[in-house]
């Protein structure tokens, strides 16, 4: 069975319009992409769509009360909300270093979460 599917690549701001030709559930042709990221995105999006999750967690006695964090790789799209909810229960003490692993496995996905910035302690906190 022949099926055509249109997607928009989210690999970069170009937002290439992709067209997939699928025969019996298998991708036979991908057109519209300007670079190879588009092809990889199309395959991933058709077979197992996933997204990066970035949010913030509470940071005690830091320069700011929130620390931005992200998943090191994209998580399955269906798990995005569960991952965000699990992250929102976390707390950390300042200081924090950029790239520091906050959690090895978020919400049973096997994916680690890291700090997106260094956060020094607030000047007036001990």
């Amino acid at each position: 069975m022949l099926e055509k599917r249109r997607l928009t690549c989210i690999g970069c701001p170009m937002s290439c319009p992709l067209e997939l030709v699928i025969i019996d559930g298998e991708i036979r042709e991908i057109t519209g992409n300007d670079c190879k990221r588009g092809e990889a995105y199309a395959r991933q999006e058709y077979t197992a769509p996933c997204r990066m999750v970035s949010t913030t967690i509470a940071c005690n006695s830091g320069l700011w009360p929130r620390l931005p964090v992200k998943t090191v790789t994209a998580v399955p799209k269906a798990e995005v909300m569960a991952v965000a909810r699990a992250l929102h229960t976390l707390e950390i003490e300042a200081p924090v270093q950029i790239g520091q692993v906050i959690l090895d496995d978020i919400a049973g996905t096997g994916i680690a979460v890291i700090a997106c910035r260094s956060l020094p302690s607030a000047p007036n906190s001990k």
């Binding site: 701001p13 990066m52 970035s54 949010t55 931005p68 950029i98 997106c116 910035r117």
Partner: peptide, 25 residues
């Protein structure tokens, strides 16, 4: 950049996708 915590920055300049705070740092 410090408040733009989503990823999507740096593909041209650093050749990798970063969040705003990572790009700034």
């Amino acid at each position: 950049l410090n408040q733009c915590i989503h990823s999507g920055f740096g593909l041209h300049y650093f050749k990798e996708e970063l969040t705003g705070p990572e790009y700034a740092e």
